[in-house]
Design a protein around this nucleic acid. Structure first.
Length: 445
DNA sequence: TACCCGTGGAC
DNA sequence: TGTCCAAGGGT
């Protein structure tokens, strides 16, 4: 059953959309492949951000077959900077499924589309309605906000059950024969008028019967529980520069096939142990205050930030040898960068380092020669003490590596030396794109 | 269910 | 500067 208010809502919204819809590159036609790519890119991503990526992507992979047959690395490179990289790999996997299971034609069949990799309830509904005009709901954050306000729904939209409920409502509102336009109208209204912060009720085509607005609740709806704040992590990264024949090159590594930033390239880095992190970032304090603390502590003990950096670079090199089996020696602190994920915040401390062997025995740290040892903050003293013995033998090992072995034979399979040119071929997360960009720029001078 | 997955813009 | 959050899906 459909109430009078619902009829009014659907009609007015649809008319508004037809008169006000934006011109967007994925609205040129109703090619299911083009719709599909746009919907995946638009997941958790703004229209303005997506447009240039979409243009480049469709230019490079104009057809579903082209995408299915492309090297995965090229797809990932095309997605570089857009985030949520599993979307790119799942999209290609989905395209390959269409090739193998549906003769390369996106099926006009709800269950088949929904079964494709990376296609969930929203994307399935979007493809079915926009490309095939099938009366399926496509409920995203916009739709939940618009309908929560219009029908004064106080369900928590962060809960999956709420999306299911709103899907049923949205399905009941689809006007005969206009599923694609109506679903896009709901999202367009949410994006342009019924916005999260300051909804433009005065220009809203359905203001007259909006229950949320009539109750004065347009600013409090929708109800949404707050997300957990991201956990902070200090990452110790190595900018390992080549010497001799490898001068001008940098050592990078590729991440694992699953998980965070899967298959992306990066500077080698390790998680700073809690004990070391707490020296720099006392609990519950901001980074700035923490840095001042570190300064103050270090100054008081006649060491300075240098001592903290020395401790960190020792941990970095030791952990890198343990975890990846590569032997490097730090040559100094290089820089810092922040990287914010949905659930983690990285404070990346970058240390310059050299690979493999060292010719000068004088560079070998010892109790007497390492300023960091003598000057380490009290909190670090214990940790330094524990590490000292291992540390000495570690550097003795590093110093003993012959040059030719160090430079060529001892790279793990996921490690590569690159010059500035390979940056165009390999996909990096933004933080390493930025850091490496700064490095190439610096050595140009 | 509750996490895990990026990034940038707006306020 | 911090906070929210954007056309979500996978596990």
């Amino acid at each position: 059953m459909k109430t009078e208010a619902a009829h009014y809502f659907s009609r007015e919204l649809l008319n508004w959309y037809l008169a006000n819809k934006r011109v967007l590159p994925w609205r040129m036609n109703r090619d299911p492949y083009r719709i599909w790519v746009s919907e995946v890119m638009l997941q958790q991503t703004r229209v303005d951000t997506v447009i240039p990526y979409y243009e480049r992507f469709m230019d490079k992979f104009p057809t579903l077959t082209a995408l299915a047959e492309a090297p995965e690395a090229e797809v990932l490179k095309c997605w570089e900077g857009l985030g949520y990289y599993s979307r790119a790999r799942n999209l290609q996997a989905g395209a390959q499924e269409v090739v193998s299971r549906h003769n390369g034609i996106v099926p006009d069949h709800k269950e088949s589309v929904a079964a494709l990799r990376g296609v969930g309830p929203y994307t399935s509904g979007a493809i079915m309605s926009i490309a095939f005009n099938r009366p399926e709901p496509a409920v995203d954050g916009n739709v939940m906000r618009v309908l929560s306000r219009y029908f004064l729904l106080e369900d928590d939209i962060a809960k999956p059950a709420t999306r299911v409920k709103i899907e049923k409502l949205a399905a009941s509102l689809i006007p005969e024969g206009s599923a694609g336009d109506f679903n896009q109208a709901l999202m367009e209204l949410g994006a342009l008028v019924c916005t999260p912060k300051s909804p433009g009720c005065l220009t809203c085509p359905v203001m007259a019967h909006c229950e949320g607005r009539m109750a004065g609740m347009e600013h409090t709806l929708p109800i949404k529980t707050k997300a957990k704040p991201p956990r902070p992590e200090t990452r110790l990264a190595a900018l390992i520069v080549g010497t001799g024949e490898l001068a001008g090159m940098v050592l990078i590594r590729q991440r694992a096939e699953t998980g965070l930033l899967a298959k992306m390239w990066e500077l080698p880095h390790v998680l700073a142990p809690q004990s070391a992190e707490s020296i720099i970032k006392p609990k519950g304090r901001g980074r700035k205050a923490a840095a001042e603390d570190a300064n103050a502590t270090a100054t008081a003990s006649a060491g300075s930030l240098q001592s903290v950096h020395s401790l960190q670079s020792d941990i970095l090199c030791r952990t890198l040898s343990e975890e990846d089996g590569i032997l490097v020696r730090p040559t100094g602190w290089w820089g810092e960068a922040e990287h914010v994920f949905s659930h983690i915040v990285w404070d990346v401390q970058v240390f310059k380092a050299e690979f493999g062997f060292f010719t000068s025995v004088d560079q070998s740290p010892s109790e007497a020669q390492s300023p960091m040892r003598a000057a380490a903050p009290k909190a670090a003293a214990e940790l330094v003490g524990m590490l000292a013995a291992e540390q000495r033998s570690f550097y003795e090992l590093v110093d003993g590596i012959p040059a030719e072995l160090g430079e060529t034979k001892m790279l793990p399979p996921n490690y590569r030396w690159i010059g500035v040119q390979q940056m165009k071929e390999l996909a990096f997360p933004n933080v390493f794109l930025k850091l490496l960009g700064e490095y190439w720029h610096a050595i140009e001078q």
